[in-house]
């Protein structure tokens, strides 16, 4: 009775040819953890399932010419267990710790998490603070776009149906302080109500010399919050400053989203989580 066909391409090139041919009637299975849910609910009704979960070309985490390259097919478990990421992108590693469940981390991929374009994708804020670029392969060849351009809105992707994310290229950084935090309705197996990622370095005089900050799950697409970074840099981190930075963050968020019902919680909570996350930086 099944009307869906299964295709397992042997290479990225092969996959792109298939995707170019099938267009939007194909759904890509990388880890499958989102696609399978959408298939069950009827959210998507593809005619073809293109299984790229075993393409070696999409695997691996490595340094290439001072850039940190993460294959799109790397699983969340692999991210959590990577020594390279622990050193050069620790916030990303942390985002994998509370990602869904062990079972899901074992198959869900970073490429899938980004391509799904959920505002709540936990790997996105850490990728944003590392100013990650996304390597796309399509029928017209390869492209490199900023991570923030992948989603054009909630669950809406910039990608053409024939395009495939093959890797992420991050600016590695051994920041003095890096973290990822999320709030969910329970401690595990939770979708982020809000999430954030940060990297901070301080000067010898104790002022913040470098900061990258991204907010997730609050805006239609995760955002680097440059006004907050600019406000904080050059200042000595005090508790008062954190509260002020949190306030600015909330304002920036509301500027993007407007006052939706969920703001009643999110307005104070982004401030609170900002203070909580950055508190270790105070002296």
């Amino acid at each position: 009775m099944s009307k869906i066909a299964y295709i397992k391409p042997d290479s990225v090139g092969d996959a792109i040819e298939i995707l170019a041919d099938k267009g939007s009637s194909a759904a890509i299975i990388a880890g499958g953890t989102d696609v399978m849910v959408d298939l069950r609910s009827g959210e998507i009704t593809p005619e073809y399932l293109v299984d790229i979960s075993r393409l070696e070309e999409l695997k691996g985490i490595r340094m290439e010419n001072d850039e940190l390259v993460i294959g799109a097919g790397v699983t969340l478990s692999e991210i959590y267990n990577s020594d390279l990421l622990a050193e050069y992108a620790p916030a990303l590693k942390k985002s994998a710790y509370n990602f869904a469940s062990a079972q899901i981390r074992n198959i869900a991929t970073i490429g899938g998490n980004v391509a799904h374009c959920s505002p709540c994708g936990d790997t996105i804020p850490p990728l944003v603070i590392h100013e990650a670029e996304v390597l796309l392969s399509g029928k017209d060849g390869q492209k490199r776009i900023p991570i923030e351009q992948v989603a054009t809105g909630p669950y809406r992707s910039f990608l053409e149906p024939h395009e495939l994310i093959t890797a992420f290229v991050l600016k590695p950084r051994k920041a003095a302080f890096a973290d990822f935090k999320k709030i969910g309705r329970r401690k595990d197996l939770a979708i982020s109500r809000l999430s954030m990622a940060v990297m901070i370095d301080k000067s010898d005089d104790g002022t913040i010399s470098f900061m990258r900050f991204s907010l997730g799950a609050c805006t239609p697409t995760p955002h680097r919050m440059i006004p907050v970074e600019e406000f904080m840099v050059g200042k000595k981190p005090t508790e008062k400053l954190l509260f002020e930075g949190g306030r600015l963050l909330a304002e920036s968020m509301i500027e993007i989203t407007g006052r939706r019902p969920s703001i009643i919680y999110k307005e104070p909570a982004v401030q609170g989580l900002f203070v909580r996350m950055l508190h270790p930086v105070v002296n």
């Binding site: 299975i29 499958g32 953890t33 399978m36 849910v37 469940s101 079972q103 899901i104 198959i107």
Partner: peptide
């Protein structure tokens, strides 16, 4: 590896 068999083809 432990996986959810409902999420796997």
């Amino acid at each position: 590896k432990a996986v959810n068999s409902c999420l796997m083809l």
